[in-house]
């Protein structure tokens, strides 16, 4: 009886994990080199912004919403750090950027909870606002960031710093899940039933969007450290892939189920797709086609497998 519970909790993360294994294998075959710690560290560095963004997206999706403002907030954090760095120094600039991200997330939450706006459009509007502010502050890409880049690009005990950060974040998630998990899942699973169980759903929503804002800010930090400069439109390309990664990681868009480990794996898998396409040497025009096709096929295969296995269980 019990192992089934464990299985049902871990199976949702499987597509993401399997996908990354498959893609790494493909890459090894195509590039002819063996997998190394170095190549994993590279992947983590490049995939970090999307992975962190996916973390926030996953949290929001599990509690029954969606956050399209992640990209805008990422850009805003990136621009704020770059613009404020010369006058304030790295840490104060970082602090301002994170505080702004939190506020943006909080506004999302307030608009959704008290303004009764549907999350999709509320966060869409917020993404316009955030990237609008970013664009006003920094109309042309530029600026440079030196502080922290060294640390970020460096390694600790052989693993890239990014991995450690990610591990810390995922552990944090486990803690959150342990104490608030049921409330989060209940709110996403069925809001009015959660209310009947005396869950304060408004508070869950507010916290989730605020946290997602903060996490988007962190993703903005990751992207800043990676490109070491500012770009007011850098975040846009992470929004929809973060949603795709969440779903690919086995977490239902309907909310109330799944986890965050699978989505993070799937985020790296999506990054790895571009690496694979790159090593095959085909035209970059095919890039979007291939990565989109991988998302669709990955989900299709996962769903077919799921259906097969549930049929087997029935008979």
């Amino acid at each position: 009886m019990k192992w089934r519970g464990w299985l049902s909790r871990w199976v949702p993360g499987f597509p993401g994990i399997i996908l990354i294994v498959v893609l790494l294998t493909v890459n090894i075959i195509l590039s002819g080199t063996m997998i190394s710690l170095g190549s994993i560290n590279d992947l983590v560095q490049v995939g970090m912004p999307l992975a962190v963004a996916t973390l926030g997206q996953g949290l929001v999706i599990i509690q029954g919403g969606i956050d399209l403002s992640i990209g805008g907030i990422m850009s805003l954090a990136n621009v704020l750090i770059v613009v404020l760095l010369p006058t304030l120094g790295f840490w104060p600039a970082l602090l301002v950027a994170m505080a702004t991200s939190v506020v943006a997330g909080l506004i999302n939450g307030v608009v959704i909870v008290y303004g009764r706006v549907q999350p999709l459009v509320a966060t869409l509007a917020m993404s316009f606002v955030a990237s609008g502010v970013a664009l006003s502050l920094l109309p042309q890409p530029g600026g440079s960031v030196a502080t922290g880049v060294g640390v970020y690009m460096g390694t600790f005990l052989g693993f890239s710093t990014g991995i450690w950060v990610l591990v810390v974040l995922l552990l944090l998630w486990l803690v959150v899940k342990r104490f608030f998990g049921l409330a989060i899942y209940a709110t996403g699973g069925q809001e009015h039933a959660a209310q009947r169980n005396a869950v304060n759903v408004n508070r869950v929503h507010l916290w989730a969007y605020t946290l997602s804002g903060l996490i988007a800010g962190l993703a903005g930090l990751a992207v800043t450290l990676e490109i070491a400069s500012g770009d007011a439109s850098i975040g846009a390309s992470y929004v929809l892939p973060s949603v795709a990664a969440v779903v690919l990681g086995g977490t239902s868009l309907a909310g109330g189920s799944g986890g965050l480990v699978g989505p993070v794996m799937a985020a790296f898998a999506l990054t790895e797709v571009s690496n694979v396409v790159f090593s095959t040497g085909v035209s970059s025009y095919y890039q979007t086609i291939v990565s989109s096709a991988v998302v669709i096929l990955g989900l299709a295969v996962a769903n077919i497998v799921k259906r097969r296995s549930s049929l087997l269980r029935q008979s």
């Binding site: 049902s8 409330a183 169980n197």
Partner: peptide, 15 residues
């Protein structure tokens, strides 16, 4: 019902 459809019976009772 006041059951959360996506959670298991155990989790529902725990909630």
């Amino acid at each position: 019902f006041s059951l959360i459809p996506t959670l298991s019976s155990v989790e529902n009772c725990a909630l």
